[in-house]
Design a protein around this nucleic acid. Structure first.
Length: 269
DNA sequence: GAGCCTGTTATAAA
DNA sequence: GTTTATAACAGGCT
């Protein structure tokens, strides 16, 4: 599922190819996939592509086109005459024979067209992979939101944005912290471990072009239609019953905060 | 063929 | 005010 590293992989895959290209025509195949006026993007040029958390933002010069892929959304770059997937919700025809397809089997993804991104900026917390997110930022969040369980703290997009279920579990493992413990119970030394785990897990996943797991049509793909490689590097997520890489204890999976939660009961005790 | 899996939002409850 | 729980959305997959 597209979390920060997957959305960043999409952004990096698109930027060189479609920055400064112009949208010649847009087609919508499913009403509910769109919020706003699709006609407004016609003849607009893509000035920049930005990522905030799990959102991908196209800067169209005084207009924004915002994608959220939710569970199964894909953005694929192809050509004008290419055949469409039956799950295509919208197509954007660009100059130089390029076509951007928004494909979404499970229909939760959304394209929003809006003149401002103020609401989005207000709702989202800090960018974990940015240099503005420091150990001091994390300590401040611990002070303010320390009553939360670590996993729900990591998943809360209004605190730190972009972490989803897969990377939350991986971060807890890398920092040797229980996903169930209260954030305020974490020592300052361990908060430092957590800080570096957040940075490292996300950066490693970006370098591996994201995680492509499981179910065929909702499996993550890059804009070229390729799979990522990070699924080969997971320590706990989808590793139930496998041996812990540190202590060989069997990885457990339980339901927590209505999510599958994977952890080593010994070294994350 | 029922239940799983996932992100976000809304709503209710503690 | 804060945190947690649950349902809703949807459908391919097990």
């Amino acid at each position: 599922m597209p979390e920060l590293p997957e959305v960043e992989t999409i952004r990096l895959g698109l930027i060189a190819k479609i920055q400064n290209k112009t949208i010649v025509k847009a087609e919508l195949f499913q009403e509910k996939s769109l919020i706003g006026n699709l006609d407004a993007v016609s003849l607009k040029t893509i000035k920049a592509i930005i990522r905030r958390g799990k959102y991908l933002l196209f800067d169209l010069d005084h207009l924004f086109m915002i994608f959220h892929l939710r569970m199964s959304g894909r953005i694929i770059l192809t050509h004008h005459q290419a055949e469409r997937s039956p799950y295509t919700k919208a197509c954007f025809y660009l100059t130089e024979d390029l076509r951007l397809d928004f494909i979404d089997v499970r229909k939760f993804g959304r394209i929003t067209i809006s003149s401002t991104i103020d609401d989005l900026q207000k709702a989202l917390g800090q960018e974990p992979v940015s240099d503005y997110f420091t150990l001091q930022s994390l300590l401040a969040l611990q002070q303010k939101k320390g009553n939360r369980a670590l996993k729900s703290f990591l998943l809360d997009q209004s605190l730190i944005c972009g972490i989803g279920n897969i990377y939350a579990d991986e971060i807890c493992f890398e920092a040797s912290l229980s996903p169930f413990m209260r954030v305020k119970e974490i020592s300052e030394d361990k908060i430092e471990d957590l800080f570096f785990a957040i940075k490292h897990v996300l950066k490693k996943a970006i370098a591996s072009h994201g995680t492509s797991l499981g179910h065929g049509l909702s499996n993550f793909k890059t804009p070229k239609g390729e799979s990522g490689r990070n699924q080969e590097k997971l320590s706990v997520y989808a590793q139930e019953g496998m041996k812990c890489l540190r202590c060989s204890t069997k990885i457990q999976k339980v339901r927590f905060a209505s999510r599958g939660t994977h952890f080593c009961p010994k070294c994350q005790g």
